[in-house]
Simulated assay, not measured.
Amino acid sequence: MVKLKDIAKACKSKNAGPFHITLDIMFDNAALFERVRETGVITPALIARLYNVAPASIQFTEYPPALAWKATLPRRIPSGAIGDTDVYGAQQHAPLLDIEIPIDMPR
């Protein structure tokens, strides 16, 4: 078992307008991307659970040519509204980092 933060090239987030966040998970190794993809761990259901949103509210794209996944989901608080602590949405990727992927990696 390995954590996503230890194998992905990047896990990031950003605003997709004032009411949505986009999450990106990217790899720089096609073979590793395929291994992760084959586990079936990264899904809209996982994103929904991590971010406490309805699965139907997530736009989810698996994009093998870019070795990436993208998910767009509603923000809990609109960007810049009272109570918003991340106006750019740049810190919302943190829950992705500890996703456990059931593969073995050489040490």
Rank of each mutant, 00 (worst) to 15 (best):
M1S: 09
V2A: 07
K3P: 00
K3G: 01
K3F: 06
K3H: 04
L4H: 13
K5A: 13
D6K: 12
A8F: 12
K9D: 08
K9C: 12
A10S: 12
C11K: 05
C11V: 11
K12Q: 04
S13T: 08
S13L: 08
S13D: 09
K14C: 13
N15Y: 04
N15A: 11
N15D: 14
A16Y: 07
A16R: 04
G17L: 09
P18I: 11
P18G: 10
P18N: 12
P18L: 10
F19C: 06
F19R: 03
I21F: 04
T22N: 11
L23T: 03
L23A: 10
D24M: 13
D24E: 13
I25F: 11
M26V: 11
M26K: 11
F27G: 01
F27W: 05
D28I: 01
D28Y: 03
N29P: 13
N29E: 14
A31I: 03
A31Y: 05
L32C: 07
L32W: 10
L32K: 03
F33K: 00
E34L: 12
V36T: 05
V36L: 05
R37F: 10
E38V: 07
E38I: 07
E38C: 03
T39F: 06
T39P: 00
G40A: 10
G40P: 00
G40W: 09
I42G: 00
I42E: 00
P44Q: 02
A45S: 09
A45V: 02
L46G: 00
L46I: 07
I47D: 00
I47W: 01
A48H: 08
R49S: 14
R49P: 01
R49F: 11
R49I: 03
L50N: 09
Y51E: 10
N52C: 06
V53I: 14
V53A: 09
A54H: 07
A54T: 06
P55C: 12
A56S: 14
A56R: 14
Q59P: 05
F60C: 04
F60I: 11
E62M: 09
E62G: 05
E62F: 07
Y63I: 07
Y63C: 04
A66L: 08
A66I: 02
A66W: 01
A66V: 05
A68L: 04
K70Y: 11
K70A: 13
K70W: 11
A71E: 03
T72R: 04
T72I: 15
L73Q: 06
P74A: 15
R75W: 15
R75K: 08
R75N: 14
R76Y: 11
R76T: 15
P78W: 06
P78I: 12
P78Q: 13
S79C: 15
G80S: 13
A81T: 12
A81V: 06
I82L: 14
I82A: 15
G83D: 14
G83M: 13
G83Q: 09
G83V: 12
D84Y: 06
D84T: 15
D86E: 12
V87I: 08
Y88R: 10
G89N: 03
G89Y: 05
G89K: 02
Q91V: 02
Q91W: 12
Q91P: 01
H93C: 07
A94N: 03
A94L: 06
A94Q: 04
P95M: 09
D98N: 11
E100R: 03
E100Y: 00
I101F: 02
I101D: 00
I101H: 01
P102T: 01
I103R: 01
P106V: 02
P106T: 04
R107L: 01
